[in-house]
Amino acid sequence: MKIRTQHQNIGAALMQIAEHDSFTAINPLKLRGEKITNAFLINTDTCVFLKYGNEPKPTGEYQFTFTEEQLLCIEEAEDHYKNVFVCLVCVEAQEICGLTVSELNQMISARKSTVVGDEESYQVLVTATQGGRLRAYTNAAGRKLVRALTPLVISRSRFPAFLFD
């Protein structure tokens, strides 16, 4: 099998998970009998959805797009498993921004509050400034560089330990 870019980028996160003392098993995540792309079941009760961004936009932001279908899979995983997380790999910065599902939902709700109706997809933005903490947020609809909420400050050392807490 050829190695694809996503294997390398998502594999970096999976390797850190596998090296954690509390790690015992990893399997592809299956919902309704189908494998979910870039989602894994860690140990017996923790789901991890992984996304990667190769390099930041000129604004310094890594952009991660969540489609309606992906958000439905995350919601469905919450119905079946104790812990569900989203991990965003910022490749060029060599950092992983780990989010709880409630943090992801908070950002999407903030975005939804700035627009009438639902959108087809939602972008989560992450900045990884040198020597600082990671910041995750969404922008307000139709307003460039206006954030829909105060950025969530995420410790660089949060991942992967928070998956096992």
Rank of each mutant, 00 (worst) to 15 (best):
A12R: 10
S113R: 15
H20R: 14
D21G: 09
M15R: 15
A161H: 03
Y137I: 09
K35Q: 11
H20M: 06
D165Q: 08
Q63N: 07
L149E: 10
T100K: 01
T46E: 08
K2N: 00
Q6K: 04
G117Q: 07
K2T: 00
G11Q: 01
C47N: 13
V101I: 08
Y137A: 06
A140I: 14
E119P: 06
T150C: 14
D165A: 09
H80Q: 05
Q16R: 15
R143G: 12
P160L: 06
T46R: 13
S157K: 13
N139E: 04
A18G: 09
A161D: 12
R135Y: 03
V91C: 08
I108V: 13
V153M: 15
F64Q: 02
A77C: 05
R111D: 14
F23Y: 11
E69I: 07
N9S: 14
Q16D: 13
T127N: 09
R158K: 08
A110E: 05
D118K: 09
T100P: 00
G117H: 13
P160Q: 00
N83D: 15
E61N: 08
N105W: 14
Q63R: 13
G53I: 07
Q106S: 07
V116D: 10
D21T: 02
P58S: 07
G53H: 04
V124F: 00
T37H: 15
C87G: 12
I10R: 06
V84I: 11
E69F: 05
H20T: 02
L152W: 00
P58C: 12
Q16P: 08
I17M: 05
E95H: 00
A148D: 03
F40N: 09
I42C: 12
S22V: 05
V91F: 05
L163G: 00
I108C: 14
E75I: 02
C47K: 03
V91L: 13
Q123D: 09
G11W: 00
E92G: 03
R143A: 13
H80W: 00
D118P: 07
M107D: 11
L71M: 13
F40K: 07
G33H: 00
F164D: 08
R135Q: 12
I154N: 06
K35V: 14
A140K: 15
I3F: 09
I10P: 07
E19V: 06
L88M: 14
